[in-house]
Simulated assay, not measured.
Amino acid sequence: MPVIWAPLPGGLVVGLIAAVTATRWLRRRSYRYEDEADAPVRDPRWLWGVLPVAMGLVAVGWWPSSPSLAVLWGVMTIGLGVLSAIDLDVHRLPDRLTFPLAGVVVAGVVVVGLIDGTPHAIVRALAGGAALGAFYLLQVIIGGARGMGLGDAKLAVSLGMILGFSSWWHVFVATLAAYLIALVWGIGLILFRGAGRRTEIAFGPHMALGAVLVAAAPGVVALVGLL
């Protein structure tokens, strides 16, 4: 087995375990408010397919150059999967998950920066979190929190930090990808579901997918190069 393939099995296994564990917790619906108790239920079992693949690609792409950053991206990927499932279910990103995630990412980028000897990346990560959080917060203020909420702005802080750790280009591409994915999704809803201007769309999953696609890209390139 080529060295670059070595992290793949571990990523797949960890992703599957995380998916099964997350699904069991999500099915309790403990994140729902009382007035959401009777809302339609979204099945989170899609995580069983998504998390193993995402974790495997993240492991292949990042482990050879920075095992510590690969671990941080792995934790982030799991967090994004859980938050996406919740947002799809109730169109809300709970503070009790977004705040701890931000704390984990802050600690994570500091530790990774010290281990890898890249203190400048720590500064860029913190600046990226502040910039992306402010960008989304401005949209919430301008839009009156319609279509995009404070939860998205809080999640943006974590995304900006972990993406910014690598480069500003990562922040830009992931953010652009989120909007393009949301655009395609919205068009699909209009064409096939008869959605209108007042149709609510959870934006958190688009943000998460944009970031994960950027994180998985090095793994995809590495694997394709070996085929």
Rank of each mutant, 00 (worst) to 15 (best):
W73T: 03
V14K: 04
V106W: 07
L176A: 15
L72R: 07
R27M: 12
Q139R: 07
L213G: 05
A37W: 10
G194H: 11
F165D: 03
V221Q: 07
L97I: 09
M207I: 08
G113E: 02
V157Y: 06
V111E: 09
V14F: 06
G149S: 13
A222K: 11
R198L: 06
T21S: 14
T98L: 05
G151L: 01
M76C: 12
V171N: 02
G188V: 03
E200I: 01
S167I: 08
Q139Y: 07
R24P: 04
E34C: 10
A156W: 00
V171R: 00
L176S: 15
P119E: 08
S66K: 07
Y179A: 14
D43S: 15
V110Q: 00
A121Q: 13
G10P: 04
R96H: 13
P64E: 07
T118N: 11
V53C: 10
D152P: 05
R96F: 13
L176Y: 15
V60Q: 04
V112L: 10
A22L: 06
V3K: 14
A19I: 03
A178K: 01
A19T: 04
L126I: 10
A195Q: 12
A134W: 08
G15W: 00
S166M: 13
L132Y: 06
L159R: 02
A153M: 11
V214Q: 04
L132F: 12
L88Y: 13
W62F: 13
L88N: 13
R197S: 14
G133D: 06
I187D: 12
A174G: 07
D116T: 09
F135Q: 05
A156D: 07
P2V: 04
L209Y: 05
W185C: 11
G143Y: 04
G10M: 00
V41L: 07
A215I: 10
I78G: 03
R197G: 01
G113N: 07
W62D: 02
A195M: 10
G117N: 09
L138F: 10
G133Q: 01
W169S: 15
F99R: 14
